[in-house]
Nucleic acid binder design. Structure first.
Lengths: 192, 192
DNA sequence: GGCGGCATGTAAGTTGTTACATGATTAA
DNA sequence: TTAATCATGTAACAACTTACATGCCGCC
């Protein structure tokens, strides 16, 4: 079992989803700390179904809208999967197991570390792009938080999701702070 | 050229290094935003040398000490590489190119997101382990910063390295803050 | 009829991890 | 002489990305 499998099991625990929907949720909700590609999700769904941890829901629906909205009868028919008890057991076992090594890869910091080999303008542009990205991320998380806060007693996992969002907000604030300082530093470097 | 190649070129720009030394530097200095394994470093060194971007320094030295200390005549003979002009050009080109997509994988946040499926004690233990790890990291960065600060005018890239350390410190502070809040949240959850 | 968006899927290639094999030296 | 540490290297595997192929539908 790889990490992708558990992401899928965890999301299916909230309700049935198709591969495409899983991808969208991971991109939007997990974006700041996780990513998955189609090339991981679809094979993982096939394998999980093969091992009897999830099952395909019969009667292929068609649709363009996620999460129970009105079926828009658009696009190719959707293949939704649901969690079965064996899958939930595997998920719970994993939840109790120790957390695997976390990994990061922030190329921008590599550029900064070797910064004396680039000109200040170029570096500043790269920092600026990073800043814009994380400004957007912070805005998204902020909106998501405001949507969820009033509903926090409606569902057992909402408080946990709020907790996750809070880390995203803190980290993004740290990034934005740093970008401000770093852009100042680079400006001064250019003047000298 | 993969990212590993540029990490190597960048480090060699400061002076000749062996694969083992590169690994140690990446672990200690880049630890909070990057990682490389031997399985990436050694083949990359071979390939870079093959393409004439770096070259092996003749006259195999033996040693246990990095960065110019007294040779301790310990262990198997060391194979050091140095950057050649072609490699420096490739490095500078890369520095001017746009930054590739950053990636993260924080499994702990996955656990938190699905937190309602685990008991509070277990989750708290996982958060606590995360806290300890990043406390250590913050301490390391702090020490590194204090060592480097007085020397910041001695070398063109020291101010850049300080800038990198500062991001590490900010992010780790954000993590530690979050851990405190989250442990409180989990404690309250357990009481209810 | 053709385009664009929704959706599923695969294959090829790249990248990265892990475990192991080797060798040399020092210290117990 | 055995263990530990330093150091290099490789092979097998696992994970991931990317680009593409397919198909269905609605719309112009």
């Amino acid at each position: 079992m790889r990490q992708t499998d558990y992401v899928i099991l965890g999301l299916l625990e909230e309700g049935p989803l198709s591969g495409y929907e899983i991808k969208k949720i991971v991109d939007i909700r997990f974006g700041f700390f996780w990513s998955e590609s189609f090339g991981q999700i679809f094979p993982a769904l096939r394998d999980l179904a093969g091992r009897g941890l999830i099952e395909e829901i019969p009667g292929g629906e068609t649709g363009g809208d996620a999460a129970g909205g009105p079926a828009e009868a658009k696009g190719r028919s959707r293949k939704r999967y649901r969690l079965v008890p064996e899958g939930e057991a595997a998920l719970r076992d994993w939840m109790a197991s120790p957390v695997a090594r976390e990994s990061y890869r922030l190329e921008l910091l590599l550029r900064m570390y070797f910064g004396h080999l680039a000109d200040g303008q170029t570096l500043a542009g790269q920092v600026e792009a990073f800043r814009r990205k994380h400004e957007g991320e912070a805005l998204l998380l902020d909106r998501f938080r405001r949507e969820l806060e009033p509903l926090k007693d409606k569902d057992e996992n909402h408080p946990h999701i709020l907790q996750v969002i809070d880390l995203g907000l803190k980290v993004n604030r740290a990034y934005l702070d740093w970008c401000r300082e770093t852009l100042e530093f680079l400006e001064e470097r250019t003047r000298r």
